[in-house]
Every structure is written in C-alpha cells, then in structure tokens.
Design a protein around this nucleic acid. Structure first.
Lengths: 129, 129
DNA sequence: CTGGACCTTCCAGTACAGGGGAAGGTCAAG
DNA sequence: CTTGACCTTCCCCTGTACTGGAAGGTCCAG
C-alpha cells in the first residue's frame, strides 16, 4: 500500500506518516523500485494505537516508548499503567488549577459587569485587572 | 532606571523586558547617551498589569490589545470584560474536556491495574490502550 | 589601566505535533 | 507524448513566552 492509501484508510495525512517515521513511531518501510514507501496493512493498527494513545493524553514520545518496548518483544503493560497513573495525577492537578483560575476570572468578570468607567484610574490601566 | 534595576524591582528579567518591548507591550524607552534604556518608575506598574493579565490566563497578545486601547486614551473596561467572558467560556470547556479525559484514563488505568500479560495480543500492542 | 558588572544587538533554540510548499521523480490514462 | 495525480526529500513556518549565548560597548572601583 502506498502512503496516500494508508493515510486515507487510517484517517490521517501523508505528512503525518512521514513525520511519525521520522520520529521513530513507525518503522521505515520497504520501498518500491521507484523509492515509494510500501506499507503493509497492519500499519493501520499501529496508527490507530498511536491515536488511542493521543486520545489518552500521551505525547508522541511516550507512545514511542511503549511501541519500542513492544517492538523488543516485551509486554508494555506495566509501563502503560505507570504512564496512565502519571497522566492521571497531572490531570487532577490541571483540573484543580483550572478550577481555581475559573473562580478568579469569574470574580473579576462579575466586577467588570458593572461598568463605572469614571472610577478608572489612569495609573492602573484597568481597575478590573 | 536601568533595565536591570527595573527587572529586579518588578521581579522579572532583563531578557523579558526587552522581549516585551519588542512585542509592543512596553513602549520604547528613552536612551542614555551610551544607548542604555532609561526607564521611569511607572513602568513597574505596567509590568505588574501584564503579570495580572497573565494570571488571569490572558495571552501577551491580548494584554497588548488592552494596553493599546488604554494608550490611546480610552477605557479598556468593555474589552477586558469581553476577554474575561471569552476566557471563562474557554476554561469551562477545558474543564469539561479534562474531566472526561480523566474518567477515560481512570477506567483504562483500572483495567491496567490487573495485569494479565498472557492476554496481550501481538496485534494490538497493548490491550490497555 | 584593568577587571567585573552592567548594557547593547542579533541569532538560535526550547516543547509540541505537525503543515506549507518547492523542486524533482514516477506512473497510468488519454 | 503529455497531463495529472501521486510520490520523494528538503527546509522553513505555525503559536507561546521566553531563555541562552556570542560579540561588542560602557561605566565605576581599585
């Protein structure tokens, strides 16, 4: 299968596939005599895996590590569990920070909802911030 | 005041101040005969405003717009209110997305907590993802 | 007059995940 | 035999907010 065909099947672009190969997420393929990449259909499953990893908030570098472990013939389950754990902790922190930011901004916005421009002081740019 | 002095007072770096000037957040200063930037102490208030804007999650580009309005002699209150509104909507969406992601990952992780590597299928890289 | 602390400009790079587009090669159909 | 669709490599660009460092100028103390 040529790169455009694989890209269409997997719902991505040729640019992305070359980029993934460059980043070590996809192994270099066979080439046709003309130098065209020649993919096997199993590659689609690998691309799908990459997408699932992204959907779980993993970076391409983390996904590559999982694939590397797998490519060496080991089961990456433990590593995946650790990554998911770490990701979960990160997300909880992000959620807490974001909720706090929301409260801060909501308060600022409530004050800004009652415009009294005459109170604006040239020294402070905007009294709402 | 020289740039290092202002940077120390405002709790930032000389690099950042030159960057802000380059980005239009700080107006070009007077220069000493030697070519050194010569800041007025009021600059500190402007830097503080930038920091408050950042704390509210605004980008430097958005903060610059506020400062531009103010520098033209107008009250930026309405614009600030709109920005805070938009920011609030964004954050609510981020919060919802992040909470959904957390649930997804928590579920995956729970499955991964019970390792049964013999179920791993070579075709799917990792059954947990 | 020398050393160190400061200042200047400019160039490049960081992390992230690709996208845009040029210059050129290949292949099948009309 | 040429057109058009595909492919190749290559390098630069996106957005965000800086940071690092080189090469050179300035200022003040000792």
């Amino acid at each position: 299968m040529r790169i455009g065909e694989i890209a269409d099947t997997a719902g991505t672009t040729t640019k992305t596939l070359r980029f993934y190969e460059d980043q070590g997420l996809l192994p270099p393929t066979e080439r046709t005599p003309a130098g065209y990449r020649d993919y096997t259909p199993e590659t689609v499953a690998r691309i799908d895996f990459i997408r699932r990893g992204q959907a779980a908030g993993l970076t391409l570098a983390q996904i590559r590590r999982i694939l590397d472990i797998r490519d060496r013939g080991q089961a990456p389950c433990d590593h995946v569990r650790d990554l998911l754990d770490a990701r979960l902790t990160e997300i909880e922190q992000q959620l807490a920070g974001l909720a706090a930011l929301r409260d801060t901004i909501a308060e600022l916005r409530d004050q800004a909802a009652r415009p009294e421009p005459e109170l604006c002081n040239p020294d402070q740019v905007c009294r709402y911030l």
